[in-house]
């Protein structure tokens, strides 16, 4: 009992959400002019910037270039001021490298890579504030940045976390506080329309009995996120379109 209850008896979480509710998501496409595509994403207090360069010709060692695929280069970094304890270095540590790889894996599955042989796409994400669910926020931001860059995607790739409250009830979109207090967290990156899972990671072991319901919850979270992203994209396109004038034509 000394532990805080993640889900109170009346069904509210510590921050006042219900188990199935996402945190507030705010996002914006095209926040920078220099990169080919960029996006800003807020999930609760977690804030992420993403920038996409490319496709362009392979830089650095040419040997990396592939004849049938585009090379996707992801770089993940966290601002030193993003956590309560000031971080020593923004990137290059193990966690960042791992997250970069995971990000790349998720994006490879959704970009129509065969369209750009001998080329490269760079994706940079920067966490400005970390409050749980860093990886999902990065994936979602990267998706938006890719869309902003006009790179053909099969569909949205969305990511979401889920965990168990009180060892029984699955809950979605885990905040930092819940991560620290609670048990294992499941992170899923999925193609919500087709329901494919492209990446799944657990912070600890789940019992098999729980895995199913937690995974479904996370998947549902991905679908909800897709809806929000989709809306943002349509809004953005309309704004940009109306600025250029073609929107008026319709």
């Amino acid at each position: 009992m000394s532990k805080k209850e993640l889900l109170s008896k009346i069904g509210l979480r510590l921050d006042g959400r219900r188990a199935h509710e996402l945190r507030r998501i705010r996002c914006k496409l095209g926040v920078f002019t220099e990169p080919d595509g960029s996006a800003y994403m807020e999930q609760g207090l977690t804030k992420v910037l993403a920038a996409v360069y490319g496709p362009h010709q392979v830089r650095g060692s040419k040997s990396k270039a592939q004849h049938d695929n585009v090379v996707i280069n992801c770089q993940f970094s966290m601002a030193v001021f993003s956590t309560t304890d000031r971080k020593k270095r923004p990137r290059g540590d193990r966690k960042s490298t791992e997250l970069s790889m995971h990000l790349q894996q998720a994006l490879e599955s959704v970009i129509k890579t065969e369209l750009y042989p001998w080329s490269q796409i760079d994706v940079y994400v920067e966490v400005l504030h970390a409050d749980g669910g860093i990886y999902p926020a990065c994936v979602n931001a990267a998706t938006l940045a890719l869309i902003d860059a006009g790179i053909p995607l099969k569909e949205y790739v969305c990511a979401c976390t889920a965990s168990l409250a009180n060892n029984d009830v699955p809950m979605v979109d885990i905040s930092h506080q819940e991560e620290v207090l609670g048990g294992p967290t499941l992170t899923i990156a999925a193609l919500p329309m087709s329901g494919k899972i492209v990446l799944m990671e657990m912070s600890q072991r789940f019992h098999l009995d729980h895995l199913d319901k937690v995974m479904n919850k996370a998947l549902q979270g991905c679908k909800d996120i897709r809806r929000i992203l989709d809306e943002a994209v349509r809004l953005h396109v309309r704004d940009v379109g109306s600025a250029t004038g073609w929107a008026l034509a319709t």
């Binding site: 921050d15 006042g16 609760g44 304890d85």
Partner: peptide, 27 residues
């Protein structure tokens, strides 16, 4: 609706850390 709660907490080793938490207000 949405607001944040900010508070400062002392850790066990004596550092002072600033915590920010979300606080959702419902209808």
């Amino acid at each position: 609706m949405f607001t944040t709660k900010t508070f400062i907490k002392k850790t066990r080793i004596g550092h002072f850390l600033k915590h920010v938490r979300e606080h959702y207000i419902r209808d």
